[in-house]
Design a protein around this nucleic acid. Structure first.
Lengths: 103, 103
DNA sequence: ATAACATATTGACATTTTTCTATTTGTTGC
DNA sequence: GCAACAAATAGAAAAATGTCAATATGTTAT
């Protein structure tokens, strides 16, 4: 796979803010409604909405609207794609090539 | 494993900037000297130094000093730890629990 | 239609991050 | 010691991000 640098940066923005990490923890294990997330987080409603947008833009989280409620969950597709990006970026290479020199 | 939220945010900062992603791409497949990275990136030397610090702080990259040169490479230990954090945060849970309700 | 509620958007402000130039530190070879 | 080079640090400016209060939008029940 060819890595899309811009897209990759957007994906991993999901994981580089403490509040978003807490939200992902709350979502791990199952779907949750925004109002429930709000109760468990120490932030205002617009701030939660802002973070949920970043999480959805990353593809890691997906939203499902049901009446006036928004239900969020971890996206399997999104996380699979993110994992591929992670794998590409953390390839440690083969040992024989693992030497650089600046003679 | 219990997730360290602060540490996790620091780890994934490595992946959420376009220049750092390019650096990781350059490092994938083997160790490289800072001066080589500098030639291939379109940034100044202090900016590269700044990004290398963030990458090393994340644990994803490790540096090795040899004379006046710094050699950087992807850290196997660091990436293994990061992968564990990623796995925890992208657990989609079991299907039976995957429903939330706000009655 | 209107009231009540859940969520999104707007706009402002503070903080953090990115980037640069200039300088400093550390290393090598003369 | 001194010149040359590699990398780190300091400090400043610009850009991006996180946060909130206020407001708007959309949905449900009366």
């Amino acid at each position: 796979m060819e890595l899309d640098v811009k897209k990759t940066a957007i994906i991993f923005k999901a994981f580089c803010d403490e509040n978003r990490i807490k939200i992902l923890q709350l979502l791990s294990g199952g779907e949750k409604c925004a109002c429930k997330l709000l109760k468990e987080m120490n932030i205002t409603q617009p701030t939660l909405s802002h973070h949920m947008k970043i999480l959805c833009d990353s593809g890691i989280v997906e939203g499902r609207k049901e009446g006036k409620w928004m239900h969020y969950s971890i996206s399997k597709e999104g996380t699979e794609y993110a994992r591929k990006c992670f794998d590409i970026l953390t390839d440690t290479g083969c040992a024989i090539e693992n030497q650089s020199c600046c003679e």
